[in-house]
Simulated scan of single mutants.
Amino acid sequence: MTLEAFGQSDPLTIGVELELQLVNTNNYDLTHYADDMLRLMAQRQLPGSVVPEMTAGMIEISTGVCRTSGEALAQLGQIRDALVQCADKLNIAVVGGGTHPFQQWHQQRIYDKPRFHELSTLYGYLTKQFTIFGQHVHVGCPDADTALYTLHCMSRYIPHFIALAASSPYVQGQDTAFDSARLNSVFAFPLSGRAPCVLTWDEFGHYFDKMTRTGVVKSMKDFYWDIRPKPEYGTIEVRVFDTPLTVERAAALAGYVQCLAAWFQHERPFTPCEDDYLVYSYNRFQACRFGLDAVYVDPASGEHLPLREHLLATMQRLAPFAEQCQAGDALALLRQEVQDNRNDARWLRERQAREQLLGEVIRQAALRFRGE
């Protein structure tokens, strides 16, 4: 199989995908209601799509192509409202967050779809442990080489994305001491991590050909990279975000990605190279473990500084691009939360400290997702 041509998209358009939890309203554990939700949602006229995910306690929603984070928020809000209404009919609830805090992986059911069964056969128990919930953000690129350039520049900001979106401190009923424990499950897959540092689509095609000849890779879907090209859409796809607890935060994160892409594509501020990735895994670990309290190592200078400080400096640098992308409100929301040292992981821990019952925390998270 050869690599497909890179498709056409309008530069800096965005699309958002959210993997969401379906929980019962008794003890707020995951419940296997994906088929029922899909059946009810199929009756609605909505933007984007609603599709199944790996296990039956999950569902994935996506926007259509959006030009601004405000447009993405409007679409996410419309889909969210429909989800809530359908869930109410089934006496279940929909929740954000990167992990369900106390679900047991062995109790999950693989959704009845050929690809999911193939993955289950290949990966064994890892497939059910993949009952985790992420946000993916697509951003449009004018051509394939620009897409690869944008991807490698964006990789410098993976710790930003992880820390801002972190919402998975609990696994199997335990506080993991990570702000984003979800990504530890992703790292278990052999084709996770970072994309190869190639800067032209021809070079990437050679890499793809070599991988397909090994028989390990059949399509781009087999790469679980933190950021990957999506040639069929003409985008790159940022995949490290935990699913936020609200659609407002999800749209704001998409706006942040869009502003970064605008900076990279208009000013070409970096010259990507393999050495940029020397500190990649360390920075990613720091953000997963400590969230906004992480240390960030600059890949060019080797300087160590608080991630929060680097985030705020970057947001200031992006101010003109926020105006261009109509993302001022999105960046203002994120900036305030960085200044307050608040992400969704902290919200979940604070609720658990007060309630001492994770089921009650999820009940409150379900209300938060509804906008209540």
Rank of each mutant, 00 (worst) to 15 (best):
L46I: 08
V216E: 14
L126Q: 14
F290M: 01
P320F: 09
F208E: 07
R342V: 15
T271N: 00
A181L: 10
Q43Y: 11
R351H: 09
F208S: 08
L292K: 03
I59S: 04
D293E: 15
D143E: 12
D344I: 01
Q352S: 09
Q364H: 11
I158F: 09
L73R: 06
F189Q: 03
Q364V: 12
I14K: 08
D329R: 03
I362Y: 01
S281N: 14
H100A: 04
Q103K: 12
Q85P: 14
D143H: 15
A42N: 13
T212D: 10
Q324M: 13
T25E: 14
R239S: 02
F290N: 12
E274L: 15
A261V: 02
F189V: 02
Q316Y: 13
I79V: 14
D226I: 02
I158A: 05
L148D: 06
V198G: 07
M37V: 13
Q85G: 11
T99M: 15
M41R: 07
R342C: 14
L76P: 01
L307W: 09
F130P: 00
T246Q: 10
G371S: 09
G134V: 06
E337Q: 15
N184G: 00
Y256S: 08
L20S: 06
A165S: 15
G371Q: 07
L357R: 12
N91P: 06
H136S: 03
T235N: 09
A195H: 06
Q352G: 00
T214L: 15
L331V: 12
F290A: 07
A319S: 13
A163H: 00
H138M: 08
I110D: 07
L333S: 10
P52Q: 07
L191G: 00
Q339D: 10
Q364N: 04
Y280L: 06
V171D: 01
S168G: 05
G7T: 14
Y33H: 13
A147D: 11
E360S: 07
L18R: 03
D10K: 15
R363W: 06
A353Y: 05
L126K: 11
G57V: 00
A319I: 02
L148V: 03
I92R: 04
G371K: 08
Y282C: 05
T63W: 02
A353V: 06
M211G: 04
C66A: 12
Q75M: 05
D222Q: 04
T314Q: 15
V95H: 01
R249Y: 11
A262T: 05
L164R: 04
R44G: 05
A34S: 15
Y280D: 01
Q135M: 15
E71K: 05
M58V: 00
Q324L: 13
L18G: 01
Y123H: 12
Y149H: 08
L333P: 00
L334H: 05
R67C: 11
Y277V: 09
P190T: 13
Y28S: 09
M41C: 09
Q258P: 09
H138E: 09
A313I: 06
G234Y: 12
L76T: 02
H32G: 11
A252W: 11
L122F: 03
T243Y: 09
Q104L: 14
Q78H: 10
L348H: 09
Q129W: 07
M211C: 14
S281A: 13
Y296H: 10
Q258H: 08
H266Y: 13
